[in-house]
Amino acid sequence: MKNSQHNILIVTDNPFPVGLAATHRIIAYARGFITNGCRVQVICCKKTECKTSVHNRATHGIYRGIEFRYIPGTTVKSKYLLKRKMDGVWGGLKLLSWSIMHFNDRPVVIYYGLSTATAIILKLSSLLKGSILLKEENEHISIRLASKNIFSGFVFKHIHYHLFDGVLLITKKLIEYFQKNYPKKKIHHVPILVDAENLPQRENRSNKITYCGIFDNDGVDTLIKAFQMVVKNFPQYQLQLIGMAKKDRIEKELRALVNQANLTDQVIFRGPQPHEVVGYELSKSALLVLARPESIQAQYGFPTKLAEYLITSNPVVVTSVGEIPDYLKDNKNAYLAVPGDVMTLSEKIQEALSFPLRAAKIGAEGRNAALAYFNNIYETKKIIEWIEKNLIRSGENNKY
């Protein structure tokens, strides 16, 4: 492992290269490993695109130096449930065949997904080929179980994580949970990541206040209500929402809220955008906002978009939830608002807009914080060192 020419496979059921938070985190992982001398491939083990909304069409290629491949041979899912189920079985067999054929160089495999069936396939391949299998986890297990039935939930909780040689966890709170519930599991902390080698260029600032992410459970309704108060004093600004809701109902409710507030000309729903477009829009925004409420997700997880916000040097308004206050201080490197409080969120936004010189200084300090705490080059180097110390030198599974 000391030889820098080792291989990293990131296997995922998330879309690539266009996607939301998970895709952006995968890109940051991959770019960091590449800078540290690794060969990296992103393997999409499932079809990710709906026929009505296709953002990724290429089944293989190179994106920003990252090799990627869709194992199913196509990116688009069938509109028929039975066909999707059959594709899932066939896709699993194709993944097993592919992994047996391509795990010959004993790669480090990082699984970024939720399927226990996929995890079992990767485990079988890693045992046959002697690779190291890691799990990337950035949510509390209760969030994962919410979308599963009783049987699959039981399997996920009691079997899924035991299939891996180690886990990469996004927060210290999540580490505490795993140490208590999976005491024998090797654990490494990987905070949110920013691509330190692709720092955004300073753009001429627009009149846009921007949010980027998945709308569900992210306080977007609170943000719209706060913006309704902001425009009374700052009518020249627009609120730009980049991303989407996983549930159609959520986006319909948000659009209805915008209509009720007579903000249809000032709130822009952009939908999902390519990673480079997101970076450009964040860079030229006047202000970046995140209104995540208090929740299990906020307590054990961490909004990955925050690193991308901070690295732009633009001022950031964010709610003080989870471990965010461990890294950011109000009026020093960000503006921290009370979670769920429309009034204080509005006040923080207006404070940043009212004093642009001070906001610029706070934004610059935010960038420094991102480079110090969330640098993907440093963090992936630490992962390599952790693997060498804990999963190679110890002779675990005699893999290297």
Rank of each mutant, 00 (worst) to 15 (best):
Ser4Tyr: 10
Ile8Met: 02
Ile8Lys: 00
Ile10Val: 13
Thr12Gly: 10
Asn14Trp: 04
Pro15Cys: 07
Gly19His: 01
Gly19Lys: 00
Leu20Asp: 10
Ala22Lys: 07
Ala22Val: 13
Arg25Gly: 01
Ala28Asn: 14
Ala28Pro: 03
Ala30Met: 13
Ile34Met: 02
Thr35Leu: 08
Val40Ser: 03
Gln41Met: 09
Ile43Lys: 00
Lys51Gln: 13
Arg57Met: 04
Ala58Gly: 04
Thr59Lys: 06
Thr59Ile: 15
Thr59Phe: 06
Ile62Arg: 08
Gly65Arg: 07
Ile66Ser: 00
Glu67Ser: 15
Glu67Gly: 11
Thr75Ala: 10
Thr75Cys: 09
Lys79Leu: 09
Met86His: 03
Gly88Lys: 11
Leu93Val: 07
Ser97Thr: 14
Asn104Gly: 12
Asn104Thr: 12
Pro107Phe: 05
Ile110Arg: 01
Thr116Arg: 01
Thr116Glu: 10
Ile120Lys: 07
Lys123Phe: 13
Ser125Thr: 05
Ser131Thr: 14
Ser131Leu: 05
Lys135Asn: 11
Glu137Gln: 09
Ile141Gln: 01
Phe151Tyr: 10
Ser152Pro: 04
Phe154His: 08
Phe154Glu: 05
Phe156Met: 05
Lys157Ser: 10
Lys157Val: 11
Ile159Pro: 03
Ile170Lys: 03
Lys172Leu: 09
Lys173Trp: 04
Leu174Glu: 00
Gln179Trp: 02
Asn181Gly: 05
Lys185Ser: 04
His188Gln: 12
Asp195Cys: 07
Leu199Ile: 08
Gln201Tyr: 14
Arg202Ala: 10
Arg202Ser: 13
Glu203His: 09
Asn207Asp: 12
Lys208Met: 10
Cys212Ile: 13
Asp218Gly: 03
Gly219Arg: 00
Asp221Gly: 14
Asp221Asn: 11
Thr222Lys: 08
Ala226Lys: 03
Ile242Leu: 07
Met244Gln: 11
Arg249His: 14
Glu253Leu: 11
Ala256Asn: 15
Val258Pro: 01
Thr264Tyr: 02
Ile268His: 03
Ile268Val: 15
Phe269Ser: 04
Pro274Asp: 04
Tyr280Gly: 07
Ser285Glu: 03
Arg292Gly: 04
Glu294Met: 15
Ile296Asp: 13
Pro303Asn: 01
Leu306Arg: 00
Glu308Trp: 08
Tyr309Asp: 05
Ser313Ala: 15
Asn314Thr: 08
Pro315Leu: 01
Ser320Gly: 07
Leu328Cys: 12
Lys332Tyr: 11
Lys332Gln: 15
Ala334Asp: 00
Pro339Arg: 00
Glu351Phe: 14
Glu351Met: 12
Ala352Gln: 00
Pro356Gln: 05
Leu357Asn: 08
Ala359Trp: 00
Gly363Pro: 05
Ala370Phe: 02
Glu379Tyr: 01
Glu385Lys: 13
Asn397Glu: 14
